[in-house]
Design a protein around this nucleic acid. Structure first.
Lengths: 360, 360
DNA sequence: CACAGTAATGTACGCGCGTTCATTATCTCA
DNA sequence: TGAGATAATGAACGCGCGTACATTACTGTG
C-alpha cells in the first residue's frame, strides 16, 4: 500500500519555477547574484514539490562527505558507551560536529582485525577523523603514520604517541596524578599503593609517572625509581579500568592492607570496584584506608564515602578535537603547506571529597 | 610538504590491468562470471595502485547510503551519552550495525527546532533510522506520520505511541513497575510513594500504571484510581530522570516521610539523588525507608545500600531495533506491499538488592 | 543612442560508480 | 568443422549535483 515517496530532483524544481537547473542550485547554495524574485520563485517551487537536495549527490559533486568519523575501540564485553570517558568525549564531539554543520559517523574497530585506519579515509566517507582508544603498538603506529603520510586530517584523543607528531588532544594526567598523590601525602599518608590501568594506553603510563614523582619527592622511593618494577610489590597493582578488575585487585591487595594506608586508583570504576572488594574483607574506605580515584565521573559523587578524584575535561577534549580537525578539512595545501598541526594538553583538577580522612 | 594522496579511480586500475572499467567493477562487486585470471590481474593492479572504491560514489550510484541514522534528543545540560539508557541502546545499535555492514550516523535533534524527521530521510544520507527519546506531542506525531507515509523505514525505541502503528521496540515497563511495587508490598510496605519521570515519555506513564495497579490490587487505592491526581499528594512526586531532580524531590518528600515507608523511583539516577537528598535530612535508605529504582544501571550496584532495581534489556533493544529496521531497507514494495511492521516489547526483570529491608 | 560594464541566468560537463545491453571469446555436441 | 549455447568482456549511460564558462538582460555614462 505504502508508496516510497518519489525523489524530487533539481530538474523538476527548475521546470516548475521556469528556470534552469543551475539557478536552482545557486538558490540553494546561495552563490552568485540573483534576482530576489527568481529566488522566491524557486523556493516556492521547491516547497510545492517538497524538494530537498540529495546529500549523497552533493557529497559526490563536492567531493566532501560532510561527515566526521569517530573511531571507537572494540572493548570485549564492555558496552563501550557506558564508560564515562567515552560518553563524555562523544558528547563533546557531538556538540561541535553539530555546530560545524557536520554529521558524526561512528566506526567500530573490529575485534580481531588490525585497525585499518587508512581505509576509512580512502573510502571517502569521512572528511576527517577522531580516534579514540588508540593503543601504542607498532602496528597502530604504522597505520597512523600511513594516515599522516596520506595527508588525512585526524586526531588522537587522550592518547599520546611519544616520538610522533600526530595531532593530539590530551589531558595532563601526569600532573593530575601527581597532585592526587601529593594530596594523600599532604594528609599524612605514606604507604600509598597504585592501581594501574591497562598499560597499552599512554595515559596509564602518565598516571604512573605522576605517582612515582610524588613518591620520590616525598623520599618514599629511590631517586632513580622509574618502572613499576622499582616499586615494592605490595604497592603496585594492575587492572584494566573495569570495575571488576578493581574487585580483583582487592583480593590481591587485601593481605597487604596492614602495610598500605592509601590507594591511588587510575580510574573511578576501578576505585569503586576496589572499595567494594575491600569492604567485603571488612576494610572501610575513608576510614581503614584512604582512596583517590580518577575521572571525576558521576559515580564518584554517589559512593559512600564520596570519592576524591581527578577531574578531566573529557567533554571539552572531544569538542576541541572535533573543532580542530574539522578546521583542517580541505585547508592546508593552498597556503603553501600543511595547516598547523596541534597537540593540546588540557588541565586536570583534583576534586576533594570524603574518601581521605585527615591524619594530622 | 605533505601531499594529499591522489585519488585512485577505477579507470586507472582498468588501464593497468588492461581491462575495461566494467570489469574492475565486476571484480569488486563479485558479479557475473569471470576468468579467475583476470580477476587476479585486476586485484593485483588495484593493490599496486592502492585502489579503494569511493564509498560516496558507490552510495550515489547504488542510491543507498549504507548508513543507519540514529536520532538523539537534545537534553539540555546533560551529556546525553552519559545516561545509562542511551549508552546501552547505542551500544546495542552499534553492535548490530557493524554486523550488518552498515555505518552509524548520529543526528542530534536541535534545541529549539521542531524535529524535522523527514528531512533526515529526504537528504538520503541514511537508509533507515532509529529514533531515541521521541516525545508524544502532536507535532512529533505528525512528523512521524509523515515518515510513515513516505514509506521510510524507521523505528522508535522505548517509546510507544498509542493509537499509531509505528515500528517500535519497547520494554514492559508497566509490568516491571508492577513487580517492583509488588515486591515492596510483599515485604510489608504500605505507604509507598512514587517518583515519576518526565510525563512526555510514554514509559513514564507505563511506570505510573504499573504502580497504580499494584497499589489498587493491594487495596491501597480506590479501584477507579487512574491518574496522578487520584493519589494522595504526599505519595506522588515528579522529576525529570536526572539525579538533581531526585535531590529536589527529597526536599519535597522529607516533610512527609513520617507517612511514607517506601519509594518507587522511575529510574536509578533519581533514586540515587533522592537517597542523597534524604540522607542530608537524616533519613537512611534501606533502614528508615525502602527504595526501589529502575534501569538496573551500574550505579545501582555501587550505592550503599545496593539498590533494588528493575533491569531493562536496553542493549538488546538497540540491537533488535537496528536489526529489524535494517531488514526493511529496500524490501517491501516488490513483495506486493510493505514488509512486516513490528512492535516488540521486551521483558523487564526485578533485581533484588539490599535497599529494602524485610519488614515481616 | 551606443557602449562598456555588470547582473542574472543558461549550457554543458564531469564527479566515480553500478548496470544494461551489445559484443566477442570459448566451449559443447553433433 | 560448424552451429548454437554460454562465458567473458567492453561500450555507454545515468545517478543528482556543483560549477566553469557562455550568453543574455540590464544599468549607467558620454
Amino acid at each position: 500500500m505504502k508508496e516510497v515517496a518519489a525523489i524530487v530532483t533539481r530538474k523538476e524544481v527548475a521546470e516548475l519555477a521556469g528556470v534552469s537547473e543551475a539557478t536552482v542550485s545557486r538558490v540553494f547554495n546561495d552563490v552568485g547574484p540573483m534576482k530576489e524574485q527568481t529566488r522566491l520563485r524557486v523556493l516556492q517551487a521547491a516547497k510545492t514539490l517538497n524538494y530537498h537536495p540529495n546529500a549523497i549527490a552533493q557529497s559526490f559533486a563536492r567531493r566532501r562527505s560532510g561527515n566526521l568519523g569517530v573511531v571507537l575501540p572494540y572493548v570485549p564485553k564492555v558496552h563501550i558507551f557506558s564508560t564515562y570517558y567515552f560518553s563524555e568525549v562523544l558528547s563533546g564531539i557531538g556538540e561541535q560536529v553539530k555546530a560545524s554543520g557536520y554529521d558524526m559517523l561512528l566506526k567500530f574497530r573490529a575485534p580481531g582485525e588490525e585497525s585499518d585506519y587508512s581505509s576509512i579515509f580512502r573510502s571517502q566517507k569521512v572528511d576527517a577523523c577522531v580516534i579514540l582508544g588508540a593503543t601504542d603498538t607498532p602496528s597502530e603506529r604504522a597505520e597512523l603514520k600511513k594516515l599522516e603520510d596520506g595527508g588525512f586530517p585526524f586526531c588522537l584523543i587522550n592518547q599520546h604517541m611519544s616520538g610522533e607528531w600526530f595531532n593530539e588532544v590530551d589531558a595532563d594526567h601526569e600532573g593530575g596524578s601527581y597532585r592526587a598523590v601529593r594530596h594523600l601525602l599532604d594528609l599524612g599518608y605514606r604507604d600509598i599503593a597504585f592501581l594501574s590501568g591497562s598499560p597499552e594506553f599512554s595515559n596509564s603510563g602518565d598516571r604512573l609517572r605522576g605517582y612515582m614523582q610524588a613518591m620520590r619527592e616525598a623520599g618514599l622511593l629511590p631517586a632513580d625509581a622509574k618502572a613499576p618494577g622499582d616499586l615494592p610489590a605490595h604497592l603496585y597493582y594492575e587492572g584494566n579500568y573495569s570495575r571488576t578488575s578493581g574487585m580483583k585487585a582487592a583480593a590481591a591487595m587485601h593481605p597487604h592492607l596492614n602495610r598500605i594506608d592509601a590507594v591511588f586508583a587510575s580510574n573511578d570504576r576501578m576505585a569503586i570496584g576496589l572499595m567494594q572488594g575491600l569492604r567485603e574483607y571488612g576494610h572501610v574506605p575513608g576510614q581503614d584506608y584512604a582512596i583517590v580515584g580518577y575521572d571525576d565521573s558521576e559515580a564518584a559523587r554517589v559512593t559512600v564515602p564520596p570519592l576524591t578524584s581527578v577531574a578531566v575535561p573529557f567533554y571539552e577534549m572531544g569538542r576541541l578535537a572535533a573543532e580542530r580537525v574539522l578546521g583542517r578539512v580541505g585547508g592546508g595545501n593552498e597556503t603553501g603547506g600543511a595547516s598547523e598541526s596541534f597537540r593540546l594538553k588540557l588541565d586536570t583538577k583534583l576534586v576533594v571529597r570524603q574518601s581521605c580522612r585527615i591524619l594530622r
